[in-house]
């Protein structure tokens, strides 16, 4: 079975001289298609930094990163934008949705931005995803008026819109109460089981991590377990 992505000997250093922070120090990791993995580690251990690099939003200082056979360290901004759009979905902790747009408009964004317009087919898929997230009553709601848990479920739906192979979620439940957090995690697990989408979810919450089939622990800039 070919790996979905392979990270080898990844280094990331911020700043220079006195202010130098070496966040990742030779991190290596392989993810297989269909994995549901938690990224564990204390605050400041570099989880966000790592997910950002995996999401091609940031380049590593050194090291290798390839996904679906493509070298993502060498690629330029245009190629990475295209790659992200097709193969990677994101769920962030804060600032997830475009506040001036409805839930549905947010969900179809990744498809619409590629196709240059909101097609009927894209809208249909967006509705289906929102229904699946239990948000059929909120489809045309302005996203600014949604609750925290609802927003995160819209974000999950959006992350799935272009049927990506990988969804990166950076503390997606960090802002939610226990019940909402569990609901979001259940939906993620369900999608992972039904569609085989790979999820990598960072959290410092053991209970959330326990819902995932694999736990990856980072410490001192490397994978420790």
């Amino acid at each position: 079975m070919t790996a979905l992505l392979e990270v080898s000997d990844l280094f990331k250093t911020f700043g220079t001289g006195e202010a130098e922070t070496r966040v990742l120090r030779g991190l290596s990791l392989t993810l297989q298609p269909g994995e549901l993995a938690a990224l564990l580690g204390p605050s400041g251990s570099g989880k966000s930094t790592f997910l950002t690099i995996l999401g091609t939003l940031m380049k590593p200082t050194s090291g290798g990163y390839a996904m679906l056979g493509q070298d993502l360290v060498a690629a330029d901004d245009r190629a990475l934008t295209e790659f992200r759009n097709r193969h990677i979905g994101f769920v962030f902790q804060f600032h997830n949705l475009l506040p001036d747009f409805t839930a549905l408009e947010n969900v179809v964004f990744p498809t619409a931005v590629r196709e240059g317009r909101e097609t009927t087919a894209a809208r249909a898929r967006g509705r289906e995803l929102l229904t699946r997230m239990g948000l059929e009553a909120r489809i045309d709601f302005p996203s600014a008026n949604l609750s925290g848990g609802q927003k995160q479920r819209v974000a999950v739906a959006r992350a799935l819109m272009n049927r990506p192979e990988l969804v990166l979620a950076d503390e997606p439940t960090g802002n939610l109460d226990r019940a909402s957090a569990m609901q979001v995690m259940d939906l993620i697990a369900e999608i992972n089981r039904d569609e085989g989408t790979t999820f990598l979810i960072s959290t410092h919450d053991e209970k959330i991590a326990g819902l995932c089939r694999r736990q990856i622990v980072v410490g001192d800039g490397v994978v420790t377990g």
Binding site: R84, H95, L98, P110, V113, N162
Partner: peptide
């Protein structure tokens, strides 16, 4: 800025 960041993450190019 945050929204622009989100759009870029979702695959919106600089041209867009």
């Amino acid at each position: 800025r945050p929204e622009i960041g989100i759009m870029r993450a979702m695959g919106a190019g600089r041209g867009f």
